[in-house]
Design a protein around this nucleic acid. Structure first.
Lengths: 113, 113
DNA sequence: TGCACGTGTAATAATTATATTACAGGTACA
DNA sequence: TGTACCTGTAATATAATTATTACACGTGCA
């Protein structure tokens, strides 16, 4: 968690972001990673969830571009996958909604009564 | 859309907010309401979705406290339910994640392999 | 060799969220 | 009266997300 502060622009980015933040477990994950980077098994233990599930959450956070990962070989030869939070700052306002809604992929649904 | 700018504080509020913004149709709704207030049927026509579905979306946006509604009697006597966007500004940062994660309701899941 | 501790992922179950359909009730007005 | 607008919601189907379980593979070391 260092370097430039990211900030998304188009709808696609924001969509992934809102999606990523819409689950309490992922907020918790972000809270942990914002303090300190962790490797997968370690994180699973902290959160008390399975790695399989954790990977699913990590994927969403990565898609939202607010975490990154890298591999590291521990002293005793194990491959560790570390995750860490990126630095970012995002402002949400009604004006943003206006801007975003312009680029939302159209979805056609059936009509009324 | 006027008056003080709202900004949420605790996890519960943010949770509702992220949830509300995690669906493209609701971003679109916000985009519309941020420009101009609309009544339900009118909005359903604009978005080309059923009122039943629209009510569901409205509920989430209301739960997130970013829209409000009020009733108005039209000149020809119809009861119109108008929705409008509140004014708000929300900053999302890693530090916020740290703060929020402190107050997340604990959820216990089964362990690993 | 057999643990202990890492990684990765496929298949499936369980749960939530989204979407549809259909109904009931109200006012104005030709 | 019958049509054209409004509102409101229950019941249900469909789709997407979340969660579980189980497997495969690798290294170090007693």
């Amino acid at each position: 968690m260092s370097g430039d502060r990211l900030t998304p622009s188009g709808y696609v980015e924001f969509s992934a972001l809102f999606d990523a933040l819409s689950h309490p477990m992922r907020i918790k994950i972000m809270g942990e990673l914002a303090v300190k980077r962790r490797y997968v098994s370690e994180m699973a233990k902290i959160l008390n969830i399975s790695r399989a599930l954790l990977y699913m959450h990590f994927k969403k956070l990565e898609d939202a571009n607010i975490i990154t990962s890298d591999y590291e070989i521990s002293q005793d030869g194990k491959t560790m996958k570390y995750y860490e939070a990126k630095d970012f700052i995002i402002n949400i306002t009604p004006q943003l909604m206006i801007n975003l809604s312009k680029s939302i992929p159209t979805m056609q649904k059936t009509g009324e009564n």
